[in-house]
Design a binder for these strands. Structure first.
Length: 916
DNA sequence: AATGTCACG
DNA sequence: ACGTACGTGACATTC
């Protein structure tokens, strides 16, 4: 029989996390952040994911009485909530009462101590104990049957530390030895001194060798390093005291009151509490929760509501081959189908779990809904299934998900997908490609369509499209729906919005852009994501170690130069050190305090030796946290490849973006960072990485669009375009242009592309504004084609309210008519920049489609892995190299016929750094 | 969640 | 007079 589960929550640290982690909330009391809602969300999720039998919340004495001053403030301004609203904010003890969960606090003891004591008592009684906290210190409690759940991001996302997970992170260390580590290294945030100058590294070494603080102190004489020996000798008492401070007490006089901890929810009390404060985000789960825990026993019923909702939608669940075949026939008669994929996980583990299908007949009746899922009974697994659609489940021992492909009905329905006479309206074609599903005939991806119609929107989920393009015909989404109902409802929305959206796309002249660029690109992107790029894990580990040492050394130097220890990564603390302790001049301020960015630090460079160390520290910590530690967990352990996601509906200009990890911002400009590129290599079966990048594509687009004679001539005669610009602007011959003049001209060219302003140029070049203005005036006098082009673009944007790229991609710029100078100026710069950046983006997208097709047609193994705005990265084999080069040149240089030639540079190497 | 900082084109 | 260069994503901190 399974052991009963006792959960004890660290209310103090969780409320604190909830305060920072919470989205804007609207409730009866106005708009504010409210930790109570965050805390409630966490409770709901905890109950859903873990099904506790017993539950209690511990507090530092007196802390739970906080309500408004600390936990509910106006967002943004961070001002305390106005007095008159305070009485409308729920207090924590009310919440605990509504949930029937005891709040525990004890004079003279911290929440940690109560938690440790009770968790151990629960284990002694034969239960499994779980500690939920935002405080890493609790990890010292981990032991058999005692697991620590630690908040990662936000509050609902929990890292699970059982014994195995602890060992994976702290190899060879006993959880209780964490207090010995702290005794030696201290903890600034907890005011634990430790032994001066002893950091994590030294502490680890000592504890690994001797086991505890006491043993270390007994063996001081054996320890190597004169200075270290001295410091240990001098700070013996402090070390022992620090260890005591870090120790969670396990002998708190508190009873394990089994009965009061037993979880039994009273739906009415919860409804009353959340109803009183009008907190709807929680109200919708109350019914389900209450039925789960009705009368104090954890039950798994409560499906009645689902049945009702499902009936309302009349979704037919399909399971057999016969059912699938029959639907395919029906679809052929209809002529069009609506598809919504349901997927989870990350490539290469991403699985298409289910597909909802709608068939709309011409009669105008409500479409028929069907659902293909992966389970035996054709239904989603109700057991671990979420109360919510939007939140992820606990990651605890999840089986690899089954896929819809295993459903015989789906396999039979493939006949409809390959039937050219059936139009497929869907949302997210990439999901299908990632699952290996092909389609023939007309495919209308309404997610992409939504993006083309308004690339400035932040989201294109079906819900957003319903709001933007929907009629009132679609029934309202109901709370408590499961996946099948949600996906079915989304199909109804697609059927509702499809015509309006495709009509609008045609009216705006973007059908061709969709059919010839965006849609064919999806397939290329899916293949790139599936391929991934190989990372050399051994090198990654080496670099991580080397960089860690550099950082530790720099931190030591910085602390000693500052005369005290502080968190160098905290702009706030760094500001205090530089501008208060060291009294350096304040260069500029941010809205919250002193600015400490590169610009500022560079100005202070000669004023104090600490500055260069801080710049180095920033450089190396950036590399370590973002590119070494950040990428490591995203590497597939079986293949050593990372699989980024290329987002096709993010940027306002038409560019792609890359995330998890972002492989479009791997360092290259500086030598130190460039080493990161050495980690990226050709994978198994390939010999080289190849990089093909467009030369000056944006300026060539500018030349083409503006027809400016200087630019046309420069590119046609293969001159150095920045040198040519310098020659014109500064009135010298092109071979008289020195590095300095060229640098300035280059900055002006960039400025033109970004939407020039004298202020921006002055900042970039570190020159007075008047001088910058002078450059721009001269530039426009010489390059009149460019001048009249940007004037024309801005004038047209004002006239129409939007701008277009060469291929008809559109960006609305309503702010261009704003009376607010700032907003209007920004819109004007966008008007100048978007046609250029966007056209370049169109061209490389075309090039990707052409290159991919050419590689396939030639039957080559070499393939595209990455796109970095003006560059494609491929992995190639030695014997295909020559052919690939020729084919890429054709695909990329001929992707568009401009008034000037498009040229590419190709480089290859054994890693990405060499292929530059 | 918001902010500051910094990596890329 | 106003007071910013265009387009992205990731990380650490905030008390």
């Amino acid at each position: 029989m399974n052991k009963q589960k006792f959960f004890i929550l660290d209310g103090s640290s969780l409320l604190y996390r909830a305060y920072y982690a919470l989205p804007l909330l609207e409730s009866g009391a106005g708009v504010y952040t409210n930790a109570i809602v965050g805390f409630s969300n966490m409770l709901v999720k905890l109950l859903n994911d873990w099904r506790p039998d017993y539950l209690a919340i511990a507090f530092d004495k007196g802390k739970h009485t906080f309500r408004t001053d600390m936990f509910a403030e106006y967002k943004g301004t961070r001002k305390p909530m106005p007095e008159e609203l305070r009485s409308q904010v729920p207090m924590l003890h009310e919440l605990a009462e509504a949930w029937g969960v005891p709040l525990l606090e004890l004079e003279g003891y911290e929440a940690d101590d109560i938690i440790g004591t009770l968790a151990n008592k629960a284990v002694a009684q034969g239960m499994k104990a779980y500690v939920v906290t935002g405080d890493r210190d609790a990890l010292q409690l981990v032991k058999p049957d005692l697991t620590v759940l630690f908040t990662k991001k936000g509050i609902s996302d929990l890292a699970v530390y059982d014994e195995a997970a602890f060992q994976a992170e702290y190899e060879g260390l006993d959880p209780i030895q964490l207090i010995d580590l702290k005794g030696l290294m201290g903890d600034t945030s907890d005011n634990i001194p430790g032994v001066p100058k002893v950091g994590p590294k030294t502490a680890m070494k000592l504890i690994a060798a001797y086991g505890s603080v006491e043993q270390v102190l007994l063996h001081i004489e054996e320890i190597s390093g004169k200075a270290l020996k001295e410091r240990l000798r001098e700070n013996q008492q402090q070390a022992v005291l620090s260890k005591q401070l870090a120790t969670i007490k396990l002998d708190v006089p508190v009873e394990f009151d089994r009965e009061s901890f037993a979880l039994g929810l009273d739906g009415e009390a919860l409804n009353k509490f959340y109803g009183r404060y009008d907190i709807r985000s929680i109200l919708r789960y109350v019914k389900k929760l209450a039925s789960m825990y009705a009368g104090g026993t954890a039950g798994h019923s409560g499906a009645e509501g689902d049945e009702a909702a499902r009936k309302l939608l009349e979704i037919t669940l399909l399971q057999t081959e016969k059912e699938g075949r029959s639907l395919a026939r029906k679809a052929a008669k209809c002529g069009s189908i609506y598809l919504v994929p349901v997927a989870e996980g990350k490539v290469p583990r991403r699985r298409l779990l289910a597909v909802a299908v709608a068939l709309a007949d011409a009669g105008g009746k409500r479409p028929e809904l069907y659902y293909f899922s992966c389970n035996e009974d054709g239904c989603d697994d109700g057991g671990m299934d979420s109360l919510f659609a939007g939140m992820e489940m606990a990651e605890a021992d999840q089986e690899p998900a089954a896929a819809v492909a295993k459903n015989p009905a789906w396999a039979a329905f493939a006949a409809a997908l390959s039937n050219e006479k059936i139009t497929k309206y869907l949302h997210g074609m990439k999901e299908f490609y990632l699952a290996g599903i092909e389609m023939s005939g007309r495919v209308v991806d309404l997610e992409l369509t939504g993006y083309l119609l308004n690339p400035s929107a932040s989201r294109y989920a079906v819900e957003d499209l319903a709001e933007r393009y929907g009629s009132s015909n679609v029934i309202e989404k109901a709370d408590g729906w499961q996946q099948a109902e949600l996906a079915g409802w989304q199909c109804l929305v697609l059927a509702d919005v499809a015509k309006a959206m495709t009509d609008k796309l045609a009216a705006l002249g973007m059908t061709k852009l969709y059919e010839e660029i965006e849609l064919p690109l999806v397939r290329v992107l899916a293949d790139m994501e599936l391929a991934g790029i190989r990372v050399n894990c051994r090198k990654l580990q080496q670099q991580t170690e080397q960089v860690a040492e550099k950082i530790a050394a720099l931190a030591k130097e910085i602390h000693s130069l500052a005369g005290r220890e502080f968190n160098i990564s905290s702009p706030k603390q760094l500001g205090e050190v530089l501008f208060e302790d060291l009294k350096l001049p304040v260069i500029k301020k941010t809205k919250t305090g002193y600015s400490t960015d590169v610009e500022v630090l560079n100005e202070l460079y000669n004023k104090h030796p600490i500055i260069s160390k801080i710049l180095d520290y920033r450089l190396w910590t950036k590399l370590k946290s973002t590119y070494l530690d950040g990428i490591a967990p995203l590497i597939d352990s079986r293949t050593c490849r990372v699989h980024t996601t290329f987002n096709q509906t993010v940027t306002a200009t038409g560019r792609l973006s890359s995330s998890e990890p972002n492989l479009q911002n791997i360092p290259v400009r500086r030598e130190e960072g460039r080493h990161i590129r050495e980690l990226f290599e050709p994978g198994e079966g390939y010999d080289l990485l190849l990089s093909a990048d467009y030369s000056q594509i944006e300026l060539r687009v500018l030349a083409d669009m503006s027809q400016d004679e200087n630019f046309l001539r420069a590119f046609r005669q293969q001159e150095d375009v920045h040198a040519r610009t310098a020659a014109e602007v500064f009135g010298v011959a092109i071979d008289e242009v020195n590095g300095e003049l060229r640098r300035k001209a280059k900055a002006v060219n960039f400025g033109i592309v970004y939407g020039i302003s004298d202020y921006g140029l002055a900042q970039d070049l570190h020159i007075p504004r008047a001088e910058a203005k002078d450059y721009i005036d001269k530039y426009f006098a010489k390059c009149q084609g460019v001048k009249s082009f940007i004037d024309k673009v801005v004038a047209e944007a004002k006239e129409n309210g939007y701008v277009l790229t060469r291929y008809g991609r559109r960006r609305d710029l309503p702010a261009i008519r704003s009376s607010n100078f700032n907003q209007r100026s920004l819109a004007e710069r966008m008007a100048m920049n978007t046609p250029i950046q966007g056209t370049a983006a169109d061209i490389i997208k075309l090039a990707m489609i052409r290159a991919d097709r050419a590689l396939r047609n030639a039957g080559l193994k070499s393939r595209i892995l990455l796109q970095v705005h003006d560059e494609l990265v491929l992995e190639v084999t030695k014997d295909e190299l020559a052919q690939v080069k020729v084919l890429l040149q054709e695909a990329m240089e001929k992707a568009a016929e401009l008034s000037v030639p498009l040229t590419i540079d190709i480089n290859t190497g054994e890693n990405w750094a060499e292929a530059k």
